[in-house]
Amino acid sequence: MSTMTDTNPTDVPQSILKSPKHWRNRIAGHHWRTGDEEFDAAKLGMWLFLTTEVLLFAGIFCGYAVFRMMYPEAWANGSHYLDWRFGAANTAVLLLSSWTAANAVRCAQLDKQFWLRVNIIITIVCAALFIFIKLKFEYMVKLGEGKAPGTFFSYPYAQDPHEPLWWSLYYIGTGIHAAHVIIGAALFGVVLYYAKRYQAYGPTQYTLVENAALYWHLVDLVWIFLFPLLYLIH
């Protein structure tokens, strides 16, 4: 194992190595027999939580399907208003971040503390970039043109009376997704803090990195569905 690590324990300050939060010093919670059981449980819990996230978004997808069936014209017009290039750019950004999130887990497993932090930072930067593209080139431009949800809709060239509904679903779907991006980035922020401050994650203790990455993959996956449904199919 030692050949795979880039951290020489002698370089690490004693205050970090002795900290109870350092990954070598972490012990399982009082109600667990071993740390492995605790890890498995945390992972199972995360998967269950991700199931609830899928069902949360299922409501939005279901609404999308129903109204698409009821008002195909409005839906076709709606997706024409969206520029697929911004969607594709954001897809690329999220895919890259998912890759770095997976890398972060691997780095924790191999005790590569420096690259763990680098990968987390790239992931967070990608999240910020995603939100930036969404706000700057999509939300703000469209809201400026009056393509707003529901009764706030004031776009003068609408061809179908139900286009406000399309924008409602667009903003809710992408908005709730964006909220998840921000939460995921915040989660990685916590991971980054503990990784930097205590070297809290290593081969025997990387639960939070793993779970943050799982959450991040789901955020990515939801976008993988939102992107074609909103931008690509007419």
């Binding site: 609830t52 996230e53 899928v54 069902l55 949360l56 978004f57 299922a58 409501g59 939005i60 609404g63 949800p149 529901g150 009764t151 706030f152 406000p164 509904l165 409602s168 903003y171 809710i172 709730i176």
Partner: peptide
């Protein structure tokens, strides 16, 4: 989670008239 999104939509509906 399904009632979560439903009630969230209901709240948006009331506050923002999303329709």
């Amino acid at each position: 989670p399904v009632i979560g999104i439903t009630l969230l939509l209901l709240i948006f509906e009331r506050i923002m008239n999303i329709g």
